[in-house]
Design a protein around this nucleic acid. Structure first.
Lengths: 138, 138
DNA sequence: TAATCACTTTATAATTATTCTAAACTATAG
DNA sequence: CTATAGTTTAGAATAATTATAAAGTGATTA
């Protein structure tokens, strides 16, 4: 459970002005017990329902990108029509349920360490992500 | 090196009529030594350069989706603005060079077997894909 | 071979996610 | 308080993809 003042501090420390809109978005994204996954569409729906004053779609995009750049959000690679974000910024992987189009976290310690035996000259590894697609049994 | 008649056979056996357009696209995609990655944009550029008669963009989309459904192409998950396809349909993984926006194959035997220790009740694994993002050293 | 029909191609319109623009607004340093 | 740089906003623009519906074509049947 975060306090509003924490968000104000956090934003200021990141060089982001603590505007009313950003604080509301912080509240929706980070003032929860559990981390979660969302698309911009999901988020604007939540905001429409939860927040009294409207936040412009452009601001939602701006804010999410700003938060991602600062490392408060992670973008998840599923080649779908929409971009998914994760409030869990730890190094971890994902299940993707193709039917329900839902992501489920797969923590780093739930996957045996991944050893890549190939190297690309002049390049270094930035991240290793596993995507496990699942479908209903039977 | 495939022959044109092979493509005709292959398409017919898949329940796809061997039209002029599909044969041209087969030629571009599969009549090469090496497999490769492409976006629809890449492909239509290649077609514009290599093929005398124009193929409509809608047909390119239709054909690629038909080929994917039949298992002749694989869609690659990189959360970018465009969808990538791979003519290598074997089980394998990828490097993605963020700077150049290029994919490089990482064959299955170049990655130690991946053990997923978590299970999702009622779901079974359809695929396990690793995406290794790389950046230039230094 | 000719007729037929289901499948395919096509140009174009429609849709959708995302980014851009430029004017109005606001947090904050001085 | 004032100036200014950062922010928000509605709406336009962009870009990838999908839908539409009319014209064209491959393949089956007679």
């Amino acid at each position: 459970m975060y306090l509003k003042t924490n968000f104000i501090e956090k934003l200021r420390n990141s060089g982001l002005r603590p505007t009313k809109q950003r604080l509301k978005i912080c509240d929706v994204l980070f003032n929860t017990d559990k981390t979660f996954h969302f698309t911009i569409n999901d988020l604007s729906k939540i905001i429409r329902e939860k927040v009294s004053e409207k936040i412009s779609l452009a601001t939602i995009y701006n804010t999410i990108h700003a938060f991602e750049k600062k490392g408060y959000l992670k973008e998840i690679a599923i080649n779908s029509s929409q971009t998914y974000f994760d409030t869990n910024t730890s190094i971890h992987h994902h299940f993707f349920d193709e039917k329900e189009r839902k992501l489920i976290d797969l923590e780093n310690d739930e996957v045996e360490p991944i050893k890549i035996k190939k190297i690309i000259p002049g390049k270094k590894i930035k991240s290793v992500e596993v995507l496990v697609r699942v479908v209903s049994k039977n």
